[in-house]
Nucleic acid binder design. Structure first.
Lengths: 221, 221
DNA sequence: ACTTTTTTTACGGGAAACCGTAATGGGTGG
DNA sequence: CCACCCATTACGGTTTCCCGTAAAAAAAGT
């Protein structure tokens, strides 16, 4: 049963609607955090006081402002919170729609549910919370489809490095030097060409511009 | 005095918080539209019935779904609504933060206020509505600063077309044929090269890959 | 209608990228 | 130590892209 919830969300309006949604579910014991550091702090304090939170609802992206934060965003908050309270249920509520990121949340950070800020998000929130209360994970079907459809090619660190450099305007012929200076191997121009070709081949592309666009959509760069 | 408000917003959660915020301002007469077409329709009906809306609060981006719409988004809705009811006050509530777009809203579409979905958005909404009720426009300071920066490049239809084709893998040398077949001019290869050069120059880029990455980040393609 | 200005297109030399092939180098097993 | 395999690198020819210049076409001004 979920009775005590922490909402980590910088948007005041999103906080209001989350509050309202929780009220509809008869969950009255809610706390709000507008910054990641504060959220983690509240989790720790509640844990020490023996009245730990059952559920953390968090956004992924927090707008930076004057308050310097040690946690850079929702991802780090999730990892940190799980570290100090492994049984904490976590529901991500975000506008994120890049499959790679959502996939990462499920597979690496092991979250319990993801609801995208979209058309029927309030209804989905309720469904998600109900599912999580029953110790089930909440995977909306359209999210699963996104992940399965897009997960065609797994980029390596090396791949991402090359594409990032291209997207930053570095000439292909200048990449070998750069890689060597950073102690990355292989660094030969032919190796770079080979890698780019394999990626394009695997995805049915013909130009580097397509790779850049694809990686941007995936959130890989 | 503002007493009757129409909310055009596809996100259920945003609708909830807007509703709540309006309640706080003692504005009870609110209507909701989850699609642009429906919003325009409601404006028209209310106008004909002699009980027109005082204020339209609208998002800019509406997620496409099964319901085919004639209005593509908030921009078109604003223009269409103003056309049938010129005295309608319009407040845009959006996550948009590109100065060029916000500037366009004020200078071309002549909106009465813009509140960005961000940290203190609920408070800003109240301020904005109060200002608009006094027939003043609401320009948050940080928005003004964004606009003044102006160091952004405004892409034309033609620019976007070219970059989109590149991002889809079309060879630069094949673009002229494609443009001619679609009756777009100019279509010469030199014109395309010139345009690409101007864009890169304006943004301090050297490669097409950078343009693709930049446009992806902007959501322009 | 004619000139001027601007935009668009055509062309050519040089740089970068693409692609296949060959040579090099570092491990592994014999 | 040698032979072998694999990954990496080097090289040369071709295509595409880049960039400057000039011709042609279109638009604007007189």
């Amino acid at each position: 049963m979920i009775t005590k919830v922490l909402i980590a969300e910088d948007h005041e309006s999103a906080n209001i609607s989350l509050q309202k949604t929780l009220e509809d579910l008869a969950i009255a014991d809610t706390a709000h955090a507008y910054y990641c550091d504060d959220a983690l702090n509240k989790v720790a304090i509640a844990l020490k006081a023996g009245s730990s939170f059952d559920l953390l609802i968090t956004d992924l992206y927090f707008e930076p402002d004057a308050c310097k934060q040690t946690l850079s965003g929702g991802m780090e908050l999730i990892a940190a919170a799980r570290k100090i309270q492994p049984d904490l249920k976590i529901l991500v509520f975000s506008a994120e729609n890049r499959p790679a990121t959502i996939d990462l949340l499920y597979s690496q950070l092991d979250i319990d549910g993801f609801v995208r800020k979209a058309r029927n998000d309030a209804r989905e929130l309720k469904e998600a919370i109900n599912e999580i209360a029953k110790h089930r994970r909440y995977f909306p079907r359209h999210i699963r489809q996104l992940i399965e459809k897009r997960n065609v090619y797994a980029f390596s660190e090396f791949d991402i490095r090359i594409i990032t450099l291209l997207a930053q305007g570095m000439l292909q012929k200048d990449i070998p030097d750069h890689l060597q200076q950073n102690g990355i191997k292989p660094s030969g121009l032919s190796s770079i060409e080979k890698r780019l070709n394999q990626m394009k081949e695997a995805l049915g592309f013909s130009k580097n511009e397509q790779l850049v666009a694809y990686c941007k959509d995936l959130g890989a760069i």
